[in-house]
């Protein structure tokens, strides 16, 4: 499913628009080393880590978009880094568990 459509169906807020690509899978974790070790390329990251290092990790691991849970505030430097690396940032009030279930259901359906 296209990233844009997936985020619309999730009713997630767009903080920084992501690339126009199809997302096959996602990875949920708040441990950045775990993300780098296990997240698949071209995936979506579901996390509460709203800071620039998340973008650095996403870039290294070929993650194309980040979904921030719990409506955590996204700092400006994170937005700027994401814009520079063409990585999307979206935000939801759901927690990681509910977000993961929704994304999983939408991608399987």
């Amino acid at each position: 499913m296209k990233l844009d459509e997936l985020m619309k169906r999730m009713q997630a807020e767009t903080i920084q628009p992501g690339p126009d690509i199809a997302i096959q899978t996602a990875y949920t974790s708040d441990l950045l080393s775990d993300v780098m070790a296990h997240a698949e390329s071209n995936s979506l990251l579901i996390t509460i880590q709203a800071h620039t290092n998340t973008i650095a990790v996403a870039f290294n691991a070929d993650i194309r978009a980040v979904l921030i849970c719990h409506n955590r505030p996204v700092p400006d430097d994170m937005k700027q880094a994401a814009a520079r690396e063409h990585i999307g940032i979206y935000r939801t009030n759901d927690n990681q568990y509910v977000s993961s279930w929704k994304v999983y259901t939408l991608l399987q359906g």
Binding site: D30, L31, L32, S33, D34, M36, A37, T47, Q49, H51, N53, T54
Partner: peptide, 15 residues
């Protein structure tokens, strides 16, 4: 709390 120090850094780098 920033998502670091999970004890995976060096093992990841070696892997």
């Amino acid at each position: 709390s920033l998502g670091f120090g999970a004890g995976m850094g060096l093992p990841n780098a070696r892997r």
